[in-house]
Nucleic acid binder design. Structure first.
Lengths: 203, 203
DNA sequence: CGGTTTCTGGACTTGCGGGTCCATTTTTGC
DNA sequence: GCAAAAATGGACCCGCAAGTCCAGAAACCG
């Protein structure tokens, strides 16, 4: 049933999603009109509603999923290979570099709150993104515990939760203040803290 | 010049701001129509534009300021008295309790991104809030350093930045997932980390 | 090929909600 | 008490952008 898209159709659909995503990143969800998407992607209103029968709602949902996936892809291959301290630092550097580059034009900004309100399903997309993100961090910590680089008594899930929250807050503050300082501080201090109780262990 | 409000006028204005704030907390910025504010506060359109000549823009700005102030007030008197470990824990408990209670109905949700887009000045309000918040935390850390409860070599500003980011992210994740776990993890792990290098001193 | 489906373009409708206006009532200050 | 200023109520306007519709072009498939 989802079948019914020709080659050309699929290409157009993808073009719409990518274009809309870019437009939203640039100017914010509620500043982007369907008309803007049309202009930016060279499509007509008929096409928009052909590919997204639910209108803006559906389009926003597709964009949200697209952006959520991108957030994790941008952290690869580092995020899936947190197997040594240099690897952790490389990941840290990638995050800083990534968010410094995009500055205020953050996909999360569109996802959180804004998209969340409009599209009910967007909430699920955000939750899914956070879950995958945190899981990857947890696995990294577990691996380091298995090699003795992190205290095995540490609650990996809890530590990953705290780190993820720190990152989210750091990005949030980057959006508000324009400074990367918070994100840097969180990453550096948290990673240092993880290194602290290495094989010396204990209370 | 700002003078021109009678007793009654000031009361009405305050009623509008408080009512609009409540409405926005409940249903989100872009779900709240001027009409809703009117119904909820028992006012007419004429009044709204009488007190907020800039229309919705101005009203939103006033609401944002009101909510920003409230966020800090809700943390008092703990936030301004981080002078012992029990005090820190009391502050921690207040935060958890506060956010657990309000759950998804978070003023920040309205402030960040949403209001920020619409009202240019809202950005400044958020920045101001974060600055005041972080300053209070920094002072708490400095005080603990002066009593020897925290390693004096620690960069208080940086640590406060990280903690603030963690809190923001924790709240963000509370909004997304409905779980308080992230916020708890951040507070507990960060405070533990601050306690760690007490008077034993650094490396 | 030729019938069928999908794709594309764009004119048109519609409803919502912010903003304007002014007439009336209440308060203020002398 | 009385003019001036502020407060109130609500009818009206108006633009915008989402959504509808359909006719024609292109692509698919046997």
């Amino acid at each position: 049933m989802t079948r019914a898209l020709t080659r050309k159709g699929e290409a157009t659909r993808a073009r719409i999603v990518a274009g809309a995503a870019a437009e939203i990143r640039e100017r914010g969800v509620d500043e982007v009109r369907l008309e803007d998407v049309m202009a930016h992607t060279g499509t007509s209103k008929g096409q928009l509603f052909h590919y997204f029968p639910d209108g803006k709602e559906g389009l926003l949902l597709a964009v949200a999923q697209h952006e959520a996936d991108q957030v994790l892809i941008d952290q690869e291959p580092m995020l899936s290979n947190l197997t040594s301290w240099p690897a952790w630092l490389a990941w840290r550097d990638r995050l800083i570099e990534r968010y410094l580059a995009q500055g205020v034009k953050c996909p999360l900004n569109g996802l959180l709150g804004q998209t969340g309100r409009r599209a009910p399903g967007a909430q699920a997309i955000v939750t899914g993104l956070m879950w995958r993100w945190q899981t990857a961090i947890t696995e990294g910590i577990r691996h380091m515990q298995s090699t003795g680089d992190i205290d095995p008594d540490l609650d990996a899930d809890r530590a990953a939760a705290a780190l993820l929250a720190g990152i989210q807050g750091g990005v949030l503050l980057l959006l508000s203040t324009g400074k990367i300082d918070h994100l840097e501080a969180v990453l550096d201090l948290t990673i240092d803290s993880l290194r602290a109780g290495a094989r010396t262990g204990g209370s």
